[in-house]
Write a protein that binds this DNA or RNA. Structure first.
Lengths: 206, 206
DNA sequence: CGATAACCGAACTCGTGGGTACAGTTAATA
DNA sequence: TATTAACTGTACCCACGAGTTCGGTTATCG
């Protein structure tokens, strides 16, 4: 009857490390870097501070590792297959996926933390950009380039066109999510996506 | 010879208050809320902590007041006259002004702080949005609406069109500024602005 | 000139959080 | 089942920052 804690087998080694990292990710995303204490993470994970420090050395390292990994998975799941299909279909589906992705609460939280902590941790910003916006930009640029060469679109400057499209899709919902904690009904996202595609095709359609 | 300090007449009352607020604004923008200490502000202002607390009560109040005022002046100077002129001119000039505004270091700093501190201070986000992006959106929407009625443009949904335009102009430069500390030559901003206008007019031109 | 209220500097309290130490417990492995 | 390394919990150290206090200085106003 010495079962003080919640009768749970506590794993060792890498498994424990991963559990703690997962908890730390959640807490950092919810409260930001400086509002998160190591004790808080330890409590949530049912761990002791000593274990945190044995695995990660210090708070900054834990934060970096965890946010870095998360930044590398911004797009996980969504939008992984290569862009293919007719331009209207591809663009609409990309637009809708983007809107869904970046109005999700945890995406906004990640963006918030990255923006806030990049001055203290410049590499974090670069990783996030490369894995998130940068990757999408590259893929869309490639798609526009190829499609242009096939004559299905008329896009003199694919990279510029891609930036304009992605911007037109995402900006306002993101700003409103960040600054006003706004949420959006799916119908509105669909209308927005549809019109963004129409705008794009009005100039770059073949 | 008791002239320890830098032989400067230190004003009293409101003037001193304003000096301190100005210093606090700079420091908060540079270091964020939690990385800024009251002592640091006091040192920069050549003031004592007691004076800070007499004028502002506590750190949170000082931060709120100073960031709130700053948020209300996001657009000061730029873009204050009513939008008027032919659509291509108005749109191009708006686009260029926006790009200049939000690639400026202090604009990025303000945005960064607002995004970071909005969870702790929701009103800050609302004020910023209302005085910054929201105001621009409203003004452009009104302009598009009027111009549409005059038959110079064909804009069924002015608010949506305005969001698409502003987004296409701003997004990527802002993200790159925030996450990569990138800077941009003026020529690039001009090209971007020009193409954003062309894109818009391809769909909404009369 | 005074008088006085605002100011400064410095020393203080107090809570908190990063990080460490240690004694007891438990999962893993042979 | 015996051994051991990894774990937990607690108590601890130390630095630092918010906010206060106070004696001395100085701008301001009559």
């Amino acid at each position: 009857m010495t079962q003080t804690r919640s009768s749970r087998r506590v794993p060792r080694g890498e498994k424990r490390r991963d559990e703690i990292a997962a908890v730390a990710e959640r807490v950092f995303l919810e409260r930001g870097y400086s509002e998160t204490t190591m004790q808080h993470i330890a409590d949530y994970a049912g761990a002791s501070k000593e274990t945190l420090y044995r695995h990660f050395g210090c708070k900054g390292t834990l934060f970096s590792e965890v946010m870095r990994r998360r930044s590398s998975e911004v797009m996980s799941g969504e939008e992984d297959g290569a862009l293919c299909g007719s331009p209207p279909e591809v663009l609409f589906s990309l637009a809708l996926n983007l809107l869904h992705l970046l109005t999700r609460a945890d995406s906004l939280r990640l963006y918030r933390v990255v923006v806030a902590e990049t001055p203290r941790e410049p590499e974090l910003g670069r990783i996030f950009y490369g894995q998130g916006p940068g990757r999408i930009l590259t893929r869309l640029t490639d798609y526009l380039d190829e499609t242009g060469k096939k004559g299905e679109l008329n896009v003199p400057n694919p990279s510029l066109a891609a930036r304009l499209f992605i911007g037109s899709v995402t900006t306002f919902h993101q700003i409103q999510g960040l600054a006003m904690q706004a949420t959006f009904p799916d119908a509105e996202l669909q209308i927005h996506a549809r019109e963004a595609v129409a705008l794009f095709l009005a100039r770059y359609g073949a």
